[in-house]
Simulated scan of single mutants.
Amino acid sequence: MLPINAQTALDGWISAATPVVQKMYGQTDSSWAEVRAGYVDGLDRLFPAPEGVSFTQVDLGGVCTMVITPENVIEGRTLFYIHGGGYVHGGVNAYRGLGGNYAKRLRARVYIPDYRQSPEYPFPVPIDDTFTAYRHLLETGIDPRSLAISGDSAGGAMVVTIMRKARDANISLPTAAVAISPWADLTHAGESASVRDGLDPLCSVEFLNRLARTFLDGELPTHPDASPIFADVRGLAPTLIQIGENEIMLSGATRLACHLGDNRVRTSLEIWPGMFHVWHLFAGLLPEADQALRNAVRFLEDALPVIKEE
């Protein structure tokens, strides 16, 4: 059972997502822009930014990107964070809380690209926008030895995809990666899609299948850029995968971890009993969220160099 304040926030998240579900099923005349804005505003209220961080925006190759800077920052330390939302309904302002907590704990500037989303901009546009932002961030002079990457849900899958694209383009990879609740298998063929359907309060297999069809727009769900469990992942940076035991995406995440390990990528997998999709948003409300975020930061800090603080 969740603490009362965490349960209240979870109920609020479900309520904020309801118009998205209605839009997916054609039950509202609201535009996608209106539905997204309502969802993002809802999450921004439920999971507000912590004190001690500031927000600005930069343009990275035409991709508007939110920059979060903590008061206590290790100069040069950078986290490239990719937000979730099924490639359809997320937004950077929904991540002021999680991004701000990440920034404070890692003592890093956090860059969150506001990539375009389907159905207006289906596969591969969200991925291409994110890679464009990553490439241009490196072109600003960021030292890749002090650069980490993380993301959740669709963004968790893109963590692997962006590293692959960097490798294939012969540009620098980050020093380490954390994939939170990654949507790594858009076929939903694993066991968790059947035995855990109904356990996760935020996702159902039927809804995820609709999201996948909307995003893919006719492309196969086995495309390696959409489902990294089918990709060539050799040579990627050390990666931590965190997944909740109650998640429909559990099988995909565990298969991704095995796939990375089989291809000689140093991989750590954490399965959190009783946890639901992207519980990290509940930092400050749920002990497991604080603990998981602390583990993510520790994993990244072990890989990042020690740099003189400002």
Rank of each mutant, 00 (worst) to 15 (best):
A133I: 09
G42F: 12
E71N: 14
A237H: 01
V233W: 01
L220H: 10
S192Q: 03
G244W: 00
F47H: 09
T254F: 01
L10W: 11
V110C: 03
R210S: 08
G151Y: 01
P221H: 07
A17R: 15
Y134H: 06
V306W: 05
L240C: 01
V92T: 15
G190M: 11
A103H: 10
R234D: 11
A133R: 07
E309K: 15
H280L: 02
I307R: 13
A257N: 06
P287K: 15
T8W: 02
G90N: 07
R264E: 14
A49Y: 06
N209G: 13
R210I: 15
D197P: 10
V278G: 04
R135H: 12
G151K: 03
V278F: 02
E301Y: 03
D225E: 03
Q117N: 12
R135T: 14
F230M: 12
I14R: 14
A37R: 03
V125A: 15
V233A: 04
E245S: 14
A184D: 04
V178N: 05
D152V: 05
M249E: 11
P122K: 08
I229G: 04
H259R: 04
L293G: 00
L106F: 04
F215I: 10
T222Q: 12
N5K: 11
K23F: 14
D129W: 07
V92N: 07
I4C: 11
P273H: 01
L285A: 09
F47S: 06
D232W: 08
T8M: 02
V40F: 09
L269A: 00
E51Q: 12
W279S: 13
T56Q: 09
G38D: 13
L250V: 12
E206N: 11
V35D: 00
E34T: 12
N246G: 06
R213S: 15
G97R: 02
A237C: 05
H188T: 04
E309G: 06
H259A: 04
L173W: 09
V265P: 07
S194Y: 08
R264H: 13
E288M: 04
E309Y: 00
P126R: 09
N246I: 11
L43S: 08
E34Q: 15
G12C: 10
T187D: 04
D217Y: 08
E51S: 14
P122R: 12
C203G: 07
P3L: 15
R255E: 02
Y102V: 06
T254A: 11
S204T: 15
N101W: 01
P221W: 13
G261A: 12
P228M: 11
L286H: 09
R109F: 00
L79S: 02
V63W: 06
K165Q: 14
V233M: 01
P201E: 04
V67D: 03
S54H: 06
K165I: 00
M66Y: 08
V160K: 00
N170H: 08
F215H: 14
L10G: 05
L147E: 05
D41R: 11
V110S: 01
G90S: 08
E309N: 03
L208T: 15
C64Q: 14
S172H: 10
E310M: 15
G84I: 10
H136W: 12
H89G: 00
F299W: 10
D168R: 05
A257V: 11
H280M: 07
S192K: 09
R266G: 06
Y134A: 07
P19D: 07
A257P: 04
D290P: 02
G61Y: 05
G190E: 12
V20Q: 12
S118G: 15
L211M: 13
